[in-house]
Design a protein around this nucleic acid. Structure first.
Lengths: 255, 255
DNA sequence: ATTCGAAAATTGGTCAGTCCAATTTCAATG
DNA sequence: CATTGAAATTGGACTGACCAATTTTCGAAT
């Protein structure tokens, strides 16, 4: 039946094909793929082989397989990184925040030089949504994430974008984060954060890298302090971080 | 046969179990896992199920499956990130370098504040190795990567470490990178890069964040210019990058 | 007509057995 | 001792079947 071809690793072919279909919008997020049996017939392979391909898509975070229900498309692009595979990656919130502060501040500054009008427009929308969420007492923080990711996208650099997205993805895998989030929702901190976000957006609109850097740095500093105040944790990555991380800020090298 | 339990997603259990065994050293890197048939019997599951678990391990970069040969342990810890799954991630070298310059410079500065003696010692070793490699006309650039990763490790922040490692991992997946690398090896650029690395190490030893930032920035700037000179590519991420990326560098916010 | 619940259909989860293909092993051969 | 080729090993894939979770259908009760 299958003699020539690459022989080895059939499931990868199928997975790539399906991934391509999803990326191309052949299957929208929220929709379902055809049943395994149909897919098997469509690709002229057996069900076990299709299953293997689906497992890959699942690990990549593209689909979610549910018995009796079907294969649901969850994302249009691979979301992966080890967390998606269900690995233990419960890094302390402070350690993660430390990394985010370092990277996202730079990203914000860089974005100030490269953002487009349409980027700005989308960020504005995200802030509107966040404003509504805060008013509604939303606990999801989806709009928060959206805003930060849009900034990274505004760098026009896919590597930076994916890097920041990867950082945010970790967040949702941490048990401690989820716990803290629930507690934060009840507070009024989010209003302050919304103000922070607006300050960042203002700096981006003004195309002012320094202001964008400062605004983002201050914002994440505030987030960090908020979490510290709320939690009683004794994080090893807290000591020596508070004021030491304010690294560089010298004259421009390069050139 | 399998009535109770979590029912759903059997392969994940098995994969985690096997991953645990590998992580624990039950199977060393280079060794092989038992044949699929044996594993199936050992875990009291069918071969297709074991296969599914192995596919997960393969995607995670832990094992490599070879027909007729067996299941070879490739790594002790998940190496993943989308690239490991064999996805197309052939981002332009310049775009990647842009991201690296932005992030690794900050990381170097941060590392200057937190590096330990043993970190310094390991970096020194890496540079010694690099010196030998350059002299030997090595084309692998393994010591180069090692040095950069050690810097990220010196931040004592695993998120930053993994982020930088993730960036370097992309590098090896890009066709253009490999092509460029071969050409670079023949040149003498690497001697210059070695000098750059030594400058970075000196700044770290002196625990001088600004100097570390500048040294790393200059180094990656040089790498970028080198690649530009060698390649005739017309990368969209080159325009507007050369001097605009020198972002922030203002007074310390935070506090 | 609407609502509710049980039966039927759908769909993924897993198994057992079989055959094929690539690789390795190892003994016979020169 | 090197080479070769057959046999054993091992993964690749298929078929057909049955189970379990979910969804859909449709008739009965209101």
């Amino acid at each position: 039946m299958n003699s020539d071809a690459k022989t080895q690793r059939r499931y990868r072919e199928l997975a790539e094909q399906l991934q391509g279909d999803i990326a191309a919008g052949r299957y929208e997020v929220g929709e379902r793929l055809p049943p395994e049996r149909d897919l098997a017939e469509a690709f002229s392979v057996s069900r076990p082989t299709i299953r293997e391909a689906l497992i890959m898509l699942e690990i990549l975070g593209l689909v979610q397989v549910r018995v009796g229900s079907g294969i649901h498309v969850v994302s249009r692009t691979p979301t992966l990184s080890a967390q998606g595979a269900g690995l233990a990656d419960d890094v302390g919130p402070f350690e993660l925040l430390q990394a985010r502060q370092l990277i996202e501040s730079e990203v914000a500054a860089f974005a100030a030089n490269r953002t487009t009008k349409s980027d700005i427009a989308r960020m504005r929308e995200a802030l509107d949504m966040e404003r509504r969420d805060v008013a509604a007492g939303d606990t999801d923080h989806r709009s928060d994430e959206m805003f930060h990711l849009l900034i990274a996208e505004a760098t026009q650099n896919t590597v930076l974008h994916e890097t920041v997205r990867s950082l945010w993805q970790r967040r949702h895998r941490s048990a401690m984060w989820l716990q803290l989030h629930r507690r934060i929702a009840e507070q009024e901190y989010r209003r302050q954060w919304l103000d922070d976000h607006q300050a960042v957006l203002a700096a981006l609109r003004a195309r002012n890298p320094e202001a964008a850097y400062d605004a983002m740095w201050s914002h994440l500093q505030r987030v960090r302090e908020t979490l510290l105040a709320i939690s009683d944790v004794d994080d090893p990555h807290f000591d020596g971080f508070l004021f030491t991380s304010a690294t560089i800020k010298t004259a421009v090298p390069g050139g």
